[in-house]
């Protein structure tokens, strides 16, 4: 019997990573590091603030990681990663010269064009500052297009303050207010102590004219959004970045389902108007 065969066409390409090489590794905190990656083959499409890539470590696994910056030449990617499990642990052992696989970019970016003309509130919790960094830098680079800008950042303790140098650099500008708080600290901490939502109770933004971008643990995002809503920021102008399990990032493994959509393609950035109700459901 004759069984026709088709050419051995590349199967499953959307799931096939491109090769990138680590060009720099930087330890940010005890458990957090950044990798700068340069393409070995052809570079992937440009990844924007709020989008993410799937990073593959040879033989170990693949995980979604947000873009936290671009290299000087604009082609390389910077990803900031916290060690929490097998893949991020293995990634932490990578050094300049090592190879990783990258697929992307995926997901919806922060709505920076829509935010133009408005006051901006950035609220970040812990590692949540990484996916916001490029958005903040974009706003500072195009400062004239926005109203007042404030960055509220909360870390669990002073040792866990991410991107200290960058925060200092932003703070040194007169046209942005940068506020940092920690959940708990020793006597040598001269800064604020308390939850990040407290930093949002301020008067230098006009609520109805404000666009807020929030990234951090889900509870932190929920309470930050609540504070902003209570102060009169419209739900449609509050954006948050959701985290869910992701195995494919291309919309068909089903893992990232969040109500009507998929976080990998409809998110990770959502407006509160779209998902506020879902955030109130437990175990959703």
């Amino acid at each position: 019997m004759h069984t026709p065969t088709v050419e051995a066409a590349a199967a499953l390409e959307p799931l096939l990573p491109q090769r990138y090489r680590v060009t720099r590794r930087c330890q940010e905190l005890a458990d957090t590091f950044s990798l700068e990656l340069a393409p070995v083959d052809s570079p992937l499409a440009c990844c924007g603030p709020g989008q993410f890539n799937m990073l593959y470590v040879y033989g170990v696994g693949e995980v979604p990681i947000s873009l936290s910056g671009h290299s000087q030449d604009g082609v390389g990617l910077i990803h900031t990663v916290r060690v929490v499990g097998p893949v991020t642990q293995a990634m932490s052992g990578l050094e300049a010269g090592d190879m990783v696989g990258v697929r992307g970019p995926f997901g919806a970016p922060w709505p920076l064009a829509e935010a133009e003309g408005r006051d901006l509130v950035f609220a970040a919790g812990g590692l949540g500052l990484a996916p916001l960094r490029l958005a903040i830098e974009h706003v500072l680079d195009n400062r004239g297009r926005f109203g007042s800008v404030c960055v509220a950042f909360g870390a669990r303790s002073p040792e866990l303050i991410l991107f200290r140098n960058i925060l200092e650099r932003w703070r040194a500008r007169f046209d942005v207010s940068v506020d940092v708080t920690v959940d708990c600290a020793g006597a040598d901490w001269a800064g604020k102590v308390g939850v990040v939502t407290r930093l949002l109770e301020r008067d230098d933004y006009e609520p109805v004219e404000t666009c807020a971008l929030i990234c951090g643990p889900e509870v932190m995002m929920r309470y930050s959004a609540k504070t902003l809503l209570d102060r009169g920021v419209p739900a449609a102008q509050i954006f948050l970045s959701m985290e869910r399990s992701m195995k494919c990032a291309v919309g068909y493994c089903g893992h990232c389902q969040f109500g009507p959509g998929f976080v990998c393609k409809d998110g990770p950035v959502y407006s509160h108007a779209d998902i506020g109700r879902l955030l109130e459901l437990s175990e959703f």
Partner: peptide, 23 residues
């Protein structure tokens, strides 16, 4: 199988498997 991977001197290569081609 999504892909198979092999180490090389300077990293690794990835290959997608051929489809079975059965009608």
């Amino acid at each position: 199988t999504v892909f198979s991977a092999r180490r090389t001197d300077d990293g690794f290569v990835l290959e997608t498997p051929p489809v079975d081609g059965v009608r």
